[in-house]
Design a protein around this nucleic acid. Sequence first.
DNA 1: TTAAGTTGCGTTAACGTTAACGCGAATATA
DNA 2: TATATTCGCGTTAACGTTAACGCAACTTAA
Lengths: 339, 339
Amino acid sequence: MSIKKIAELAGVSIGTVDRVLHGRGRVSEETKEKIEKIALEINYKPNLMASSLSKKRKATVAILIPDPAEDEYWQQAWTGIESLLTKAEKQGLEIKNYFYSLDNQNLFNHFAKQIILEKPDGLILAPNHPESCSNLLNECAKVSIPAILFDNQLPGFNQLAFIGTDLRQSGILCAQLLEMITHRPGSFALFHIDSPSSKTHDMIEKELGFKEFLESNQSNRLVQNFAIDTQQDLEIQLDAAFQHDIAACLVSTSKTWLVAEYLQKRNRRDVKLIGFDLISKNIELLRGGWIDFLINQNPERQARKSLNRFINYFAFGETIQEKEYLPIEIITKGNLISV
Amino acid sequence: MSIKKIAELAGVSIGTVDRVLHGRGRVSEETKEKIEKIALEINYKPNLMASSLSKKRKATVAILIPDPAEDEYWQQAWTGIESLLTKAEKQGLEIKNYFYSLDNQNLFNHFAKQIILEKPDGLILAPNHPESCSNLLNECAKVSIPAILFDNQLPGFNQLAFIGTDLRQSGILCAQLLEMITHRPGSFALFHIDSPSSKTHDMIEKELGFKEFLESNQSNRLVQNFAIDTQQDLEIQLDAAFQHDIAACLVSTSKTWLVAEYLQKRNRRDVKLIGFDLISKNIELLRGGWIDFLINQNPERQARKSLNRFINYFAFGETIQEKEYLPIEIITKGNLISV
DNA sequence: TTAAGTTGCGTTAACGTTAACGCGAATATA
DNA sequence: TATATTCGCGTTAACGTTAACGCAACTTAA
């Protein structure tokens, strides 16, 4: 009995109260103020069950992420979404997912256009293809569709809602861990591994953090930088890298297992290794002792949180907070089974 | 249009359908089966908004935990509950909290009786005072009030819903981490610190895990066991312990900072230290470099998850799954700010 | 001056579910 | 045989909100 109570107290009908509460006009300034005052006084909280029951329209949320089938990392992200799917539906949300390919910008653009046309009430976005992404986000801003980024931030969109890890800090952490576990002298190697060996935003951030730690802690470790191209012969590239006296390595991507396998092949138990992401290849080599630590960016949790924000937004009227940095999870043999 | 649709298809009224769906009897076996069949066929999912709107009764959940004001750890747990409070209310739950004192079993028993009398629809429980707890849980079982334990498991109640960390595995992890970071020879010290120095369930589990790792990895480290009583003079006790050649310590409780402060006082930078819980004293000494790692049992998340289960149970009809072990979080300087 | 539009409200039928109530028919009890 | 009770079902008023509709009274445009 709430809108009814306001109506009663104000001496008007519930229709009028509803119109004021939703700013649908057609109410005199006088009654409007009276109603607003009463609503404030009795601390009116709309009953969201009744509300979502009454309005037939469902809020739709578009989810634009890389195809889970293509990549284990994104599969984990999708798992996070999936786990909330039925709950989201029960809360009156409709989820529409668009899976793009990491190496097919056209498909991304196609989906972007489609999304703009279909005008969803919210958008969850994993921003690869930076330029296309920027365009899409600008379009969304124009028609004021709220968007949540996750996994990666997009330079130039600092005001946007974001859920992910602090990449710079991840780099710092990696350096600290390597310092802790590396007993013998020798330099630190920093591997950027990608198919066309180009540094993406996250790699750069991790590198900066890594070096920042070593400098500010007056480490006497030398840092050797290597860009590895997976389309070239790996062994040759890694052999060349290990010409140097390397005591420990950081791999800035989920391709950590490539270095681990190399160390295993060359039986280099004396080299410490730290990398990113809990994909199965990495897990296997962490178990085997060829990787010492993995930093888990937890795409599943990131994606789940993103969708959950929209649920809270549409179903509970909560505001979408801007940035949320998830804890940087350190995974090693001893806590692997617990994740 | 769902109950209505079933009614239509079955050629009965919605009242009859409702009676079948809720097992309230007064329906012939024949119609009952027909309706159940149709409900299954069209994959009927009740609209929970309408449901909770229609039924006036609120489900109440009792929360029985140590007084947050008394202890920082439990304060964190309470924070987790608080963060879900408004959401829980909007979903039609009523939360009643009972704060007991860790050293006042009478108060606990008093609350336990009160809870049994008030017959809540659910109970969230942090099981200290084991015997009293067992009694309460037995009473709850009798009148079939679902209960969720968190933080600590209760021996003898293995079938119950539980949310927390795997304590044994935590011990294993601690051993692994100490092995990784301890460069010099010397033995490992294991400190159990409590006011009346008695080993509780969690301490024992952690100790078992710790030793298990060292044994199964053929470590040549000697483990020295110390029970520290906080009511006695600490320095004397710790001085005595450090008569031995100790290279690293594990403290099985949140009192880790006591050892850290001791190390600081004696300026023993050569001793590694690992302990439990992100309470402010520990955080401070982790920052200062006197603690190397903290294992975060994340009471906030545990408590939040517990309440969330009840929300999902009452509002979304999900089942309360039995056990859920949360990831064992490794915290060190480098990822401290991210938690 | 008249038709058309606007303003400021009240009324009401949904939305899907719940649960109390009613009622005829069958069955049981006296 | 008359009276209760039970069975098996239909009807209906909520729950709080939404939004379409209607309708006087008043204003504007032609």
